[in-house]
Every structure is written in C-alpha cells, then in structure tokens.
Simulated assay, not measured.
Amino acid sequence: MCLGIPGEVLEILPDRPDLAKVDVSGVRRNINVGLLGDDSPVPGEWVLIHVGFALSKIDEQEARAVLELLEDIGKAYTDELEALQESRIE
C-alpha cells in the first residue's frame, strides 16, 4: 500500500532550496519539494509526502484529518513512518 502522509514544513534548507525539513508525527526529515515548482512551501505550511517527495500543499485542517485517518488505519501508517525514519535525503 502506498500512502501520502501530511508533514508540516519546519524550514527550507538555506543552501538547498529544493529541500525542506518537515515534521511528520514527531519524525523530522528532509524531503524534496522540487516537484512543487514555483509553489514552494514556507515554514508552517503542510505538504503531502510520498517516498521523500512533496506532492502537493494541503491546508492544516485537511492534514489533521488525514493524520487522524492514518492513525486509525494502523499498520500501514506505522510501516510508512518506519520507512520515513530510515530514509535520508541530504
């Protein structure tokens, strides 16, 4: 199962504007925001993440609803978080 997980943008890396540090349920990782093109997120905004890439920006209300749904799903969400913890984009 492939999931898109909401993450809150904490910062855009100053030396790599195509990378952002995000928080996903307490896990902080760098993700690639290059697919968003000219609509790059800013700190405080939410993005939908899949395999280390931001696919789209979403609002906070939608992000919280998706996180709640994912937490209810259980194992698929846990597996995706574990994969995120193991990933490294630098």
Rank of each mutant, 00 (worst) to 15 (best):
E60M: 04
E80T: 14
A76W: 00
A65H: 12
V47L: 02
L10W: 02
I31A: 01
G34A: 12
I49L: 13
A54S: 11
D72E: 15
D23C: 06
A63L: 07
A65D: 14
I31E: 04
I12L: 11
E86M: 11
I12W: 01
R28K: 15
L67G: 07
G34S: 13
Q61S: 14
D38S: 15
V27S: 06
E62N: 12
T78N: 08
L84P: 08
K57G: 04
I49R: 03
L67R: 09
G4K: 12
A20T: 02
I49S: 07
V51S: 13
P41N: 00
E8G: 09
I73E: 14
D23M: 06
S40A: 15
P43R: 08
K57F: 01
E62S: 15
I89Q: 09
A83I: 06
G52I: 04
E45W: 02
E62P: 00
G37W: 02
S40L: 11
K57H: 04
F53D: 13
L10H: 06
N30P: 00
L13F: 06
D23L: 08
G44I: 10
G7A: 05
D72K: 14
V9K: 03
S40N: 03
A76I: 08
I12H: 03
N32P: 00
R64W: 11
I73P: 01
D59A: 04
I49F: 10
V42F: 02
G52L: 08
E45T: 06
I31H: 02
L10C: 06
K57I: 04
L67H: 09
G37H: 05
K21N: 09
N30R: 11
S40D: 00
G34I: 02
E82C: 00
A65R: 15
E11V: 10
G34C: 01
E60N: 01
I49M: 08
L35N: 09
L19Y: 07
E71T: 12
E68A: 14
A20G: 05
V24P: 06
I31Y: 05
G52Q: 09
W46N: 03
V22P: 01
A54R: 00
E8A: 13
G7C: 07
D18I: 01
L48K: 10
P14K: 14
S25M: 11
I5K: 04
L81G: 10
A83P: 00
A65P: 02
I58S: 04
S25W: 08
P14M: 03
L81S: 09
E86D: 12
E8N: 12
P6R: 10
P6A: 10
H50D: 07
E80Y: 07
I89E: 10
E60K: 14
V22E: 06
C2P: 14
E90N: 10
L48D: 07
K75I: 12
E62L: 15
E71R: 15
E86R: 15
P43K: 06
V9P: 09
E60L: 01
H50G: 03
A65L: 13
R29D: 02
G34Y: 03
G34L: 05
L35C: 05
L55R: 13
G37F: 04
D79N: 13
D15I: 00
V22N: 06
L84F: 13
S87E: 13
A63C: 08
S87K: 04
P6T: 09
V51W: 04
E82F: 08
A76M: 11
